[in-house]
Design a protein around this nucleic acid. Structure first.
Lengths: 333, 333
DNA sequence: TTGTACGCGTTATCAA
DNA sequence: TTGATAACGCGTACAA
């Protein structure tokens, strides 16, 4: 059975009970000035007895530091985002920061609202991985003095650093190799409103085809396993040979499963590349060839950069993560 | 290009610029008393012009309300937990709450530290889904007046509500049906330190076997896809027929893939049941029979309950989620 | 309808 | 080594 502290114990009550002034209690808590060992012990025992915990609110108000950061992501439901989130939190813990999580649910108004709340909350910094937010939105943080690390971006400013992703270069090589083998055209799955990451990759896809004077195919698809699966069941009634580029594992799996259920062989007839690979690339059968970036590492790096940015110690404001081509069973090469 | 508010604008500066007292500004912000429309407009325009945002810190200190909640989970890396997280956040947004996220990483000291920080942070309430925390730990929140909703638990107290999961009953029926078909013994995958949820299910598993005077098998396994896959590759050199109960989809997939790579047929020879089903139960081939609970709904419910608990309006302090048996291709029935 | 003054729980600056 | 006392930015009775 635990004690019952009905009202919050304040520093005053500790001071009174210990027979010292609140200033001394504050000193004991923060180890700021030397306090006579005798009184220090006395104060500590009272703190323990009363179950006193300093109010982070009042501390933050007085010091103008919250030791908390904000995180803006579109949703926690994507595996690659969860991985990044976990990386961020891991470093947060080791650095003593607390984490405020905001999701935009792919809605711009939600994203804007997050910004408002984050500014109100006095976080010491923000990590943004959200395609709803424009560079101007991110600069809004700066105008309120809130340092930002923008993931999947390459914006920089006095208090803004960023972690861009390198997908384009690797993808271009994949496409060129495909051409060199004398293969036919590729199909890119276009997802409406899926954000900058995908559209940048899509642009690289188109660009490479144009440069090589090749035809290509863009296919609209939903960001849903089931819908994509159904769409491809239909499509595979007509199309019997195809190289499909999907932007994440679930979507790639939808194509693979539709191929299997249509009696088409992978990778002989149907090939699939997933852009954002996760551990499910190795679990799903056939395993999925993908462009891999370790999102956990991205999260950790983002937080390290943010801490340095907060302390004005960040030297390189851009840290690029290159993706790696991971050959699995869903493609021939 | 955005304006540059070097220092934080305070309510005082707004008041001065508007030629009113800070009390009036406060009234305008909070819509508390009627303010003459003229002055209200004046104040609002100044607020806009100066880019004033009230300090959540100072507000919280003055009102003793933070409109923020804490969430404790073992990790964000599990799909079912991410789903719950997303449900919580969704309701948080609609209710105007902010979310502080803490992970224990399966470490008790981390979990304890989370409690400390949460109490310091003055959150209005906490949602706990963490097996590291004992009931006494959870009651610690109560002694500091912090309302708690405990997921996967059935503890209640003045300010504690809970959402227990119903896996045992369904599992018993699965096992009994298995017996009734005249099948041999089942194998339960025991994961060390995987928490209460799994051990409760394991107990139900053992119990049911004892009650029916049947043999059973418990196999130790790591909470890792790759290790489990390798272990089962070894095992399937000896064992050629088996019904395996795994606690989540990745582990179940490891068994399924090992079976396939060992030339064993699913579900004719090898059957696999996943306890905590996610959308990957339907994506992975063969699809995985599972005991399903909609974790997104759990998250939403938990938050609804917490809000009611905070407002002293919660009537039923226990809301049980029953799991449902979802037959897929990894089992015969 | 508006303004004054105090309290929220700390830290920090001076003196003592 | 310690103790007053003024911030920190806001809400809110109370008074005007």
């Amino acid at each position: 059975m635990s004690k019952d502290y009905k009202e919050r114990v304040t520093i005053y009550e500790v001071a009174k009970a210990a027979g010292v002034s609140l200033a001394t209690v504050s000193r004991v808590i923060n180890n700021t000035t030397t306090v006579k060992e005798e009184t220090r012990d006395k104060v500590l025992s009272i703190i323990n007895k009363l179950g006193y915990k300093p109010s982070g609110l009042a501390q933050a108000l007085a010091t103008n530091k919250t030791t908390s950061i904000g995180i803006i992501i579109p949703s926690a439901n994507y595996v690659y985002i969860s991985n990044m989130l976990n990386g961020i939190i891991e470093v947060c813990k080791s650095k003593g920061f607390t984490t405020n999580l905001y999701t935009s649910s792919h809605s711009r108004s939600d994203a804007i609202e997050s910004i408002e709340k984050i500014i109100k909350t006095h976080v010491d910094g923000v990590i943004v991985f959200d395609d709803e937010l424009s560079e101007e939105d991110i600069e809004l943080f700066n105008s309120y003095g809130v340092p930002v690390v923008a993931v999947n971006n390459s914006i920089t400013a006095s208090k803004i650093a960023s972690i861009p992703f390198g997908y384009e270069h690797v993808l271009k090589n994949v496409i060129k190799d495909y051409f060199n083998r004398g293969d036919k055209k590729m199909t890119f799955l276009h997802v409406h409103n899926a954000g900058r990451l995908l559209s940048r990759v899509e642009n690289a896809f188109i660009q490479t085809h144009l440069e090589n004077d090749r035809e290509y195919d863009i296919m609209n698809c939903d960001d849903s396993y089931l819908r994509t699966y159904q769409d491809f069941l239909e499509r595979f009634k007509r199309v019997k040979k195809e190289y499909v580029i999907a932007y994440r594992d679930s979507i790639a799996a939808a194509v693979l499963n539709a191929a299997a259920d249509s009696g088409l062989n992978v990778p002989e007839n149907i090939e699939v590349l997933s852009i954002i690979g996760t551990k499910y690339s190795s679990i799903i059968r056939p395993t999925i060839t993908n462009l891999y970036i370790d999102m956990q590492e991205v999260g950790k790096r983002a937080m390290y950069m943010l801490v340095d940015l907060i302390n004005n110690q960040l030297v390189d404001k851009i840290y690029k993560f290159e993706s790696h081509y991971v050959k699995k069973d869903s493609t021939r090469f």
